[in-house]
Design a protein around this nucleic acid. Sequence first.
DNA 1: AAGTGGTCTAGACCACGTT
DNA 2: ACGTGGTCTAGACCACTTT
Lengths: 256, 256
Amino acid sequence: MAQGIDPASDRAVYRQIADRLRRRIEAGELAPGAQLPSESQVMSEYGVSRVTARRAFNVLVTDGLVLAEHGRGWFVRRKPPVKRLGADRFARRGEGKAAFTVDMETSNRSFAVDVLFVGVAPVPNDPAIRLGLEVGDKVVVRRRRYLAEGQPIELATSYIPLDVAEGTPIGEFNPGPGGIYARMEDKGMVFERYEEEVTARMPNEEEARLLQLAPASPVLHLVRTAIADGRPVEVCDTVMDASAFVLHYALPAHLS
Amino acid sequence: MAQGIDPASDRAVYRQIADRLRRRIEAGELAPGAQLPSESQVMSEYGVSRVTARRAFNVLVTDGLVLAEHGRGWFVRRKPPVKRLGADRFARRGEGKAAFTVDMETSNRSFAVDVLFVGVAPVPNDPAIRLGLEVGDKVVVRRRRYLAEGQPIELATSYIPLDVAEGTPIGEFNPGPGGIYARMEDKGMVFERYEEEVTARMPNEEEARLLQLAPASPVLHLVRTAIADGRPVEVCDTVMDASAFVLHYALPAHLS
DNA sequence: AAGTGGTCTAGACCACGTT
DNA sequence: ACGTGGTCTAGACCACTTT
């Protein structure tokens, strides 16, 4: 019963089947969370082998539209809740609270932090350039993973020059209230601005594992350079589950 | 010759093969553009069937690491050149040049614009909210596609309230030098700021087609609201090939 | 002509979830 | 026990690229 499927078409049969399922998803007929027809149903409905039926589903997996649940079926992916990063997230910092904390309290969601590494280590290529250091110079490295409602959503690695961290607990496990920026201000440093570069890409294997990403889940990659007293004092490299974030920015209409 | 592959492992054979290839790619041993072993080679090297060999390659396709070329082989994906969007891209606007033009001239690359649609049409849900309109109210819609060095890299759709466009060529095919913002300034409107929201996701079918995206290529989705004279005067919805862009922002350290 | 990937089939066994 | 997806095999024919 190859309903509307043309085996002689240039378009492969599995793609034609995928196209039909995709249309039903994008039209909302198959809503997020809805179960798709089973492999057996597709086999008999279109008169194809199991391999061909599965290939149709796999196209939709690669497109990020569906996921299989072993022993249960194929389902339209649900959109997870989103965390908004405000344009004023640093300007509003203060009262002893770190930027991430302010964000999460604003969005009223439970959160947690895994500290993956804190210590002195050689600085990699990219942050070295941004900090004006030589590759391999020693810096304080702080690597952590943020979770919202129990789900990992963000990996962040900060690089801080040793002279900036000197005389503070920035290189220790617990940097104290308000985070490392507060410690820098304690030393009398004055923050001028933050520069951020945003890209998006597919995760590497480690990122996919640590963030427990589903197949075909892109990440937002944000590299922030904090500038105080006329020099870069920290680079923070952040990899976020793209489905969990909206970044918000305000741009001035005129140079001030 | 199942070199280092354990058929009894929990990890499927095709995943183990994919893991090994991925490691060689991420280590740089297989550089961008390099050819991977052929399916036949993988079959004999690991003693697996062709289906299993192909499945290993397909894992890497889904991860965005490799692409097949029919009749030639499997290759590590190349990174395309990148376009940087500066934090000052609106502040530096002027001299009769549109923002995109300024960007492209800065990066010294050839570019072109396809105008896909210009006219009056009902405003969709999201821009309606941002513009303070009712869904379905008429607005000027300008939809275009940008190309760099012949490759499509960006789709942009602008929504402009009718009263803003009134008395200007904003609703016409060619809005004149400097683009629509210049025409608004001609009317005496003063721009205050631009707000941008950035997300990343997989493209839908239309976006993938218009941007000629390879499999497993995420897009950056940027929605900009231009604010002038204390009100939103334009919403620009932009979908970019994520591999072709770096967005750059500057955030103030203090509310000014 | 030879080598490469693209598509498709039929059949098998295993693992997970639900009934 | 049954239905669902997960993995794997062997074999076939086609289309594209290179020699």
